[in-house]
C-alpha cells in the first residue's frame, strides 16, 4: 500500500504550552487511522495543523505525494483532504440544499464533479433526501453531522479527517453513525479522532495515541490496548 498521508516531526507551541511535540504520523491509502488521547492532548491541533488552519513551528506534511506544509485550508480541501469540526459546523441559516450546493462549488469547474445519480445516491444513503428544504440550523445534531459528512463527500475527498464524529449523539444514534462510518470506508480513507476507545476499536485499522502533544504509541487497536504505557497514562486515568 502507498502512503497517502505523511506527517513528519510536527511541532507547535502556544506560549508555554507544547501542543505538538515531534509528532510523526503515516497513513496508508485505504487504511482507517484512529487518533486517541485525553482532552487537550493535541488531537485537534494536529488536524488543524494538517489542514492548514494552524501554522506549524516545524515539521512537514505530505498528502497524496504532494507537500502541503503551510498550504492554506481551502487548497488542502481542494487537494482532496476534507475535515469536519469537533463542534458541528454548517451554514445554519441556509437550507440543506444551499449547504450542499455551496460544498459542490469546489468541483464546479473540474470534470470530476459528482454526477446527478451519485448525488441522489449519496443523499439517500445519508437519509438527507427528504430534508433538502429545511433550514440547516433546525436539523437534529445527528442530521447536522450527516449533512456535514455529505458536504465533504460532495468534494470527492481522498481522505476525510473526522473530529469526534459521534460527540454529543444519543446511544442509538452512535450505533447508526458507526454503521455509516463503516460504510464510508468504501468511499474514501478515514482519519478519525476520538477520546473514547470504543469507537476507535470498532472502526480503526491502526491507532495513534497522543498524550500532551507527544505520540506515545502507534499500532493495531488490540496491541494498543495491551500497551503498558497507554494503560498507565491514558486508559488508567480514563477508566478511573
Amino acid at each position: 500500500m502507498t502512503d497517502l498521508f505523511v506527517a513528519r516531526d510536527l511541532c507547535k507551541r502556544f506560549g508555554g504550552l507544547q501542543a505538538l511535540r515531534n509528532v510523526d504520523v503515516v497513513q496508508r491509502a485505504g487504511e482507517t487511522l484512529g487518533m486517541i488521547g485525553p482532552n487537550g492532548s493535541g488531537k485537534t491541533s494536529f488536524v488543524n495543523a494538517v489542514t492548514g488552519e494552524l501554522a506549524l513551528d516545524s515539521g512537514t506534511i505530505d498528502f497524496a505525494g504532494r507537500d502541503i506544509t503551510g498550504v492554506r485550508p481551502h487548497k488542502v480541501a481542494r487537494a482532496g483532504l476534507a475535515r469536519t469540526f469537533q463542534a458541528v459546523r454548517i451554514f445554519a441559516r441556509l437550507s440543506v440544499r444551499d449547504n450542499l450546493q455551496t460544498a459542490m462549488l469546489v468541483l464546479d469547474d473540474a470534470a470530476n464533479s459528482l454526477e446527478a445519480e451519485e448525488r441522489v445516491e449519496l443523499l439517500h444513503w445519508l437519509k438527507l433526501d427528504h430534508r433538502l428544504d429545511a433550514v440547516a440550523g433546525s436539523l437534529t445534531l445527528f442530521e447536522q453531522r450527516r449533512l456535514e459528512l455529505a458536504m465533504r463527500l460532495m468534494m470527492r475527498p481522498q481522505l476525510i479527517m473526522l473530529d469526534e464524529p459521534v460527540g454529543g449523539l444519543a446511544p442509538g444514534e452512535i450505533r447508526a453513525m458507526m454503521q455509516i462510518l463503516n460504510e464510508l470506508k468504501a468511499r474514501c480513507s478515514i482519519f478519525v479522532i476520538e477520546h473514547t476507545m470504543r469507537v476507535i476499536r470498532e472502526l480503526a485499522d491502526r491507532v495513534v495515541v497522543l498524550i500532551t502533544g507527544e505520540k506515545i504509541a502507534d499500532g493495531p487497536p488490540v496491541d494498543i490496548l495491551k500497551d503498558q504505557r497507554v494503560i498507565e497514562q491514558y486508559l488508567g486515568t480514563a477508566h478511573a
Partner: peptide, 21 residues
Amino acid sequence: RRLVAIREDEVLAEAIGIDVI
C-alpha cells in the same frame, strides 16, 4: 454563493475549498 458562504462562516467556507482572501 461563495460570498454568502464567507458571510455565514469563514472557517467552514475555507474547509470546503473556498478561497476567502
